[in-house]
Design a protein around this nucleic acid. Structure first.
Lengths: 155, 155
DNA sequence: CTTCATGCAAACCCTTTGCACGTCG
DNA sequence: CGACGTGCAAAGGGTTTGCATGAAG
């Protein structure tokens, strides 16, 4: 079966690739390759589920070196600005963040364990764009978040 | 042409119907039909674009009666809890809210004037659900926000 | 008359910022 | 060395809460 044409490929979120790409981007943007940044990025790379800013702050503060709140937030801001990190489910009081890969895609997040799948492409939304175009509405972008239960949590 | 089967119908956001339904829901939930609540709901019903909480607070404070912040936020919370109001585009510092209609649907928001179209149904996402089901992921819900330029703002 | 929403202001939370110091290149 | 990131703590902005008052049923 092949749903790629209509729904895009579904893949697990790769962590090592993400970290490598972020490091490469840092270099090419002449961002300083500091220890705090490496630790923060490394921690995020290990996450397989979305996390809160506070969780990251605490994890870094617990380190021997004791990375400060501001550094964490500043690094997160940079990652978001560059598109390596995105906010998901901002419905609650505190924001949650999830790793992001270059290019257009969406996340399917398990509401029980937080495990995240990446859905590449979104031909599905293109149909909507056509319908909206008939109303004179030009689509320039969209966000899509999917919630559900992953295979593990259904056992 | 008929895209309804794949993309759902696209309609403008109806305000009077919304207000009527909210009022009816208030009664059936034995919520008190107070003047502040009616004013807040009435103001929201007039909006054709998403609005910030602060805008609503200011609009209410400007009224002769002077509705307080807490009342505004509490009413908003109730509306959100009941599904009559939703947060959209929480990426920025302050949240923006938009009216919601019963049943599943999505919004297409003009990034220039804020005008909102409602897209009923979302057969498009069902294709994604199938692809995810093949990975053992059961979809229970999703959010979709569309951004673009409406007919008015393209002139 | 009893119950519950209101309004004011202070508390609260997460996030951002200023400044002197330390680190990277 | 020079520039820039870091850490601390305090400020900032939006949202929530406590309590006495006042309106709704």
């Amino acid at each position: 079966m092949n749903n790629d044409a209509t729904a895009g490929a579904v893949v697990a979120l790769s962590d090592t690739a993400w970290q490598e790409q972020v490091f490469a981007a840092m270099r090419s943007e002449s961002q300083r390759f500091t220890i705090p940044r490496r630790q923060i990025i490394g921690w995020i790379a290990e996450r397989t589920a979305p996390f809160s800013a506070e969780a990251l702050v605490e994890a870094m503060a617990a380190r021997n070196e004791g990375i400060g709140r501001s550094t964490v937030y500043r690094t997160v801001d940079w990652l978001r600005a560059e598109g390596w990190l995105g906010r998901v489910g901002g419905e609650a009081g505190e924001h949650t963040y999830a790793r992001t890969l270059p290019g257009h895609h969406h996340h399917a997040v398990c509401t029980q364990c937080g495990h995240t799948l990446v859905v590449s492409g979104c031909a599905a939304v293109e149909a909507l764009s056509k319908a909206l175009a008939q109303q004179g509405f030009t689509v320039s972008g969209h966000t899509l978040e999917i919630f559900g239960t992953c295979q593990q949590c259904q056992l």
